[in-house]
Design a protein around this nucleic acid. Structure first.
Length: 213
DNA sequence: TAACACTAATCC
DNA sequence: GGATTAGTGTTA
């Protein structure tokens, strides 16, 4: 029952977190050894229960469980002294108290494991969402870059046309002004160094070569 | 020998 | 069928 759940969790971890999975798998390999199965309907040992006789499971009272829970809340480990004290307080066999603590620790561990797993699952989902958001942002920025390039090309074309058609002294001043241009809508400013090289400053004033023919 | 993992048996 | 109690084998 519990084993299958853990197997499912391991499968998911192996899918989403291969690195973590390999670590866990290694830990499991180191700790889990093959065990022999217990035969069915053979209750023996303590209380002189005879072979083949069905075991009667005695449910603990609410009061007993409450005290055990409080004690477990204080400390998960059960020392011999505390076990004897609890057993006498509850009117139980010290072995029963030990078994109860053993089972309680197992439940606590399972719960912790499930919590850890669901935390990992949430983190994974958040990471996927962030990945998609960043991918969309990259696409948007690529579009912006493409538009900026088009605009710059138009400006360069206009400049060339101006230079060739207007050879007056003012044309050089005009071209100087044109060599520095603004692409405010793209959050950029550009500086044309010559006909083939262009530098663009972004918001942080980091100059990058936009293209270099 | 206690703690643990696994399992069966039982209860609800 | 899930939760609980308890038996069994292994390990440190």
């Amino acid at each position: 029952m519990t084993g299958n759940k853990v197997d499912d969790q391991m499968e998911l971890i192996s899918h989403f977190y291969p690195q973590i999975y390999s670590q866990l798998a290694q830990q499991q390999e180191e700790t889990v050894k093959p065990r022999r199965r217990r035969k069915k309907n053979k209750v023996e040992g303590r209380n002189n229960t005879s072979e083949g006789v069905m075991r009667k499971r005695k449910l603990l009272s609410e009061e007993q469980v409450n005290l055990l829970e409080r004690s477990f809340g204080d400390q998960h480990k059960l020392e011999t002294e505390r076990k004897a004290k609890l057993a006498s307080e509850l009117g139980l066999d010290p072995h029963q108290v030990a078994v109860w603590f053993q089972n309680r620790r197992a439940r606590w561990k399972n719960k912790k494991l499930e919590e850890e797993y669901s935390k990992l699952k949430t983190q994974h989902a958040d990471t996927i969402i962030e990945k998609y958001r960043l991918e969309a942002e990259v696409l948007k920025m690529k579009d912006q870059l493409c538009e900026a390039k088009k605009k710059i090309e138009r400006l360069l074309l206009e400049r060339k046309i101006d230079i060739s058609s207007n050879n007056s002294p003012t044309s050089s001043i005009f071209s100087m002004e044109l060599s520095h241009f603004s692409l405010g809508e793209f959050g950029m400013e550009g500086q044309l160094m010559d006909d083939s090289m262009l530098f663009v400053a972004d918001y942080q004033s980091n100059y990058v070569t936009l293209w270099d023919n």
